[in-house]
Simulated scan of single mutants.
Amino acid sequence: MDSLEGLPVFVRTVREGSFSAAARALDLTPSAVSKQIGRLEDRLSVRLFNRTTRRLSLTEEGAAFYERASRILTDLEDAAAAVSSLRATPQGRLRVTMPSGFGLLHFLPVLPDFLARYPELDLDIDVNDRFVDMVDEGFDVALRIGELQDSSLISRRLSANHRVLAAAPGYLHAHGAPRRIGEVADHNCLVYTYRAQRHDWHLVDETGAEFVVTVSGNVETNNPTILRASALAGVGLVLLPLWLIGPDLKAGRLVQVLPRYHGPDSAINVVYPPGRHLSARVRCFVDFLVERFAD
């Protein structure tokens, strides 16, 4: 293969999910996108996509080619950025993923400041609470909350992730507050489903002793913002981080329960793939997060 022709169109088509969406993003016609993909498949002598009238999906060969092609384009973008260094202002597209609660409560308020500081950057922000494979899905930076899995990604710690037990005053008035750790299991406990062993709440006291309480309740969700809203409505007891419910505790909308106990501390980290040269786009974003959120 003696040309990079078609690689950007192929990668964008995978990310956008259809020829028509890729065409809009690239300011091309869908037929032009289809032709470029077809020529690329001819040169490679493989079919990259399974095409139906309703769905576009990668073949096994297409998935393998996408992983390499997206890395090649990222390296080319970084090389171009390095050559032009060294324009003082970072520029181009930066793909970022972060948890929904943190993104909405903390990053969204500072987003205008970031964009004003770096007007030549275009942010593509993915906000959700599932685990995202940065390399496979083509993200430049991720904000991760909790224990980091072993990986080749580079991480930079921003802050502690301190989780506490809490409930609304109305709930505690109606059901009473647990006085001992074992009484937590007697309450309607609202469960976060993305945690491993979701029904086992691991707690630590001031001496470092660890306890496990098996809980249940009538609300389970993969969205911590829904847990917060349910707790505020007096539905039940929650185990949530201070970055999410700290203002509610200060305002008295929620009350900390059994303050001697808390979830095992973890951290809020920003992570990004390794490379010999950190792109200006990634560097400025990481530095901005550290500036605004470090401890």
Rank of each mutant, 00 (worst) to 15 (best):
A23I: 06
T207L: 14
A229D: 15
S155N: 06
Y194I: 00
E206K: 13
E291N: 02
S100K: 11
R179D: 10
V14S: 08
P109I: 00
G138W: 01
P30D: 07
H277I: 05
G38N: 11
R144N: 10
F65T: 09
E16V: 06
D122L: 10
F293R: 04
V271Q: 06
H277K: 06
T193F: 06
E61V: 05
L105E: 14
S100I: 05
D133R: 10
R24G: 08
F10E: 11
M1H: 13
L237T: 01
A251T: 08
Q91R: 15
N128L: 10
R93F: 07
H106Y: 04
S266N: 04
P247H: 09
A160M: 05
L242K: 12
L86Y: 10
P247L: 09
V184F: 04
T74L: 01
T59K: 10
G176A: 06
L73D: 05
V290P: 02
A177F: 10
T214S: 15
E147G: 02
V213K: 00
H199R: 12
S155F: 07
I181N: 01
L242M: 11
F65I: 08
A233F: 11
L227Q: 07
L48S: 14
D265F: 02
V132Y: 11
E16H: 12
H262A: 05
A32Y: 07
R156T: 04
D248A: 09
G170T: 15
I37G: 07
L7F: 14
G170H: 13
Y171L: 01
R276M: 05
E77Y: 12
V282M: 07
V83S: 13
S155E: 03
R87F: 12
G62N: 13
A23D: 08
V271W: 06
R51S: 05
L203N: 02
E16W: 07
T13R: 05
S85A: 13
G6L: 02
N50K: 12
E5K: 15
V46A: 09
V213W: 06
D200P: 01
V83L: 14
R54K: 12
C284H: 10
L143H: 04
D150E: 13
S70C: 02
D133A: 07
R24M: 10
T89I: 11
T214F: 11
S70E: 03
L249R: 09
L44M: 13
G103Y: 11
R198F: 08
P8D: 14
P259M: 04
L143G: 02
T97P: 03
R117Q: 06
A229K: 11
T214V: 12
A168R: 12
N218H: 14
D186N: 13
R228V: 02
P273N: 03
F19D: 03
G103H: 10
A22G: 04
D113W: 09
W243R: 04
A196P: 06
A69W: 08
F19M: 07
H175P: 03
R198S: 08
L242H: 11
A267M: 03
L76K: 09
S57L: 13
V219D: 13
